[in-house]
Simulated scan of single mutants.
Amino acid sequence: MRARTDDGVELHWESHGEGEPLLLLHEFGGDHRSWRPQVAHFSRRYRCLVYDARGYPSSDVPTDPDAYSQERAVADALCVLDAAGESSAHVVGNSMGGFATLHLGLRHPDRTRSLVVAGCGYGAHPDQDAAFRAESRELSRRYADEGSAAVAADYGAGPGRLFLKDKDPAGYAEHLAVLAEHDPTGAGLTMAGVQASRPSLYDLRDDLARMDVPTLIVAGDGDDGILDVDVMLRRTLPRAGLAVLPRSGHLTNLEEPALFNALVEQFHAQVAAGRWARPSQE
């Protein structure tokens, strides 16, 4: 199915199952296929909505750099919800999708029933900010000059992704294949317009401290670039919990799908029971 955004970009989206809506937002290195283990599990009880972000076929690939930003990523998530006829949803995102999930709850809390923010935090720490933005701009240049397959060979070998290789070699090979299939224009402009240009989470702490959406933060203990940031988010967000998966990296939903799914289910059950309030001692 196709959803048309207010700036004329068409997004490919899919709906699986019936029940409460569960919107899944993929990371930079993936696309809607990155959520297969979750769709297979949750579509038995939820209506799972997945889509390809702008710049990721089968969605449109705008060539205007101004078409890519963190704000556009949030607007696109809302566009898919609207196309699906859903006023609100439980939202789950990883990495780039985790940032979009967090910003969706921050800017449009009325559209979110709960948030699962996984793998979120790269480049957000003040000590990493400048280097991350420079690295993202360099990756954008490499996509233009070298193409997706060349970038995938290096990007896919990052330490946070090698946990998947050790645990599930076939799953890792599929992950690399998806990464190598990225449209170089879309990937490069996403790197420049979204990754390298998004606001620092540390600059948003006052806003985050007022966000009242139930939030589960998920991190792998081997995903070193995000752990300090996720502790900050846990301490800042009024209704947040933090789950750290042992011996895990950046792709927790693929590395440990059963554990990831169980954590999400337990979280949703707590939210439904009204048990995900601010702890009294806080």
Rank of each mutant, 00 (worst) to 15 (best):
115 L>D: 00
200 S>E: 01
15 S>P: 11
178 V>Y: 03
2 R>Q: 05
177 A>E: 15
179 L>Q: 02
126 P>I: 09
43 S>H: 10
141 R>N: 08
272 A>V: 05
241 G>E: 12
151 V>G: 01
253 N>K: 03
120 C>P: 05
92 V>D: 00
94 N>E: 09
62 P>E: 04
268 H>M: 14
87 S>M: 10
77 A>N: 03
94 N>I: 12
169 P>C: 08
260 F>M: 05
278 R>C: 13
226 I>R: 06
24 L>P: 05
18 E>Y: 13
30 G>T: 15
82 D>N: 09
67 A>T: 05
254 L>T: 00
217 I>K: 02
155 Y>H: 14
91 V>G: 04
36 R>K: 15
114 S>Y: 06
33 R>E: 13
162 L>C: 07
210 R>K: 14
48 C>E: 04
217 I>N: 02
226 I>Y: 09
199 P>R: 00
68 Y>R: 04
5 T>N: 06
50 V>P: 08
110 D>K: 13
151 V>N: 02
112 T>E: 10
50 V>R: 09
120 C>Y: 09
128 Q>N: 14
197 S>I: 02
61 V>W: 02
15 S>C: 14
8 G>K: 10
182 H>W: 06
213 V>Y: 13
244 V>W: 01
111 R>S: 11
122 Y>M: 12
129 D>V: 13
131 A>K: 12
245 L>E: 09
3 A>Q: 01
31 D>H: 04
237 L>T: 06
64 D>N: 12
129 D>Q: 15
250 H>E: 01
51 Y>V: 00
213 V>F: 13
97 G>W: 12
32 H>R: 14
181 E>V: 13
103 H>C: 07
16 H>L: 10
10 E>F: 08
257 P>M: 10
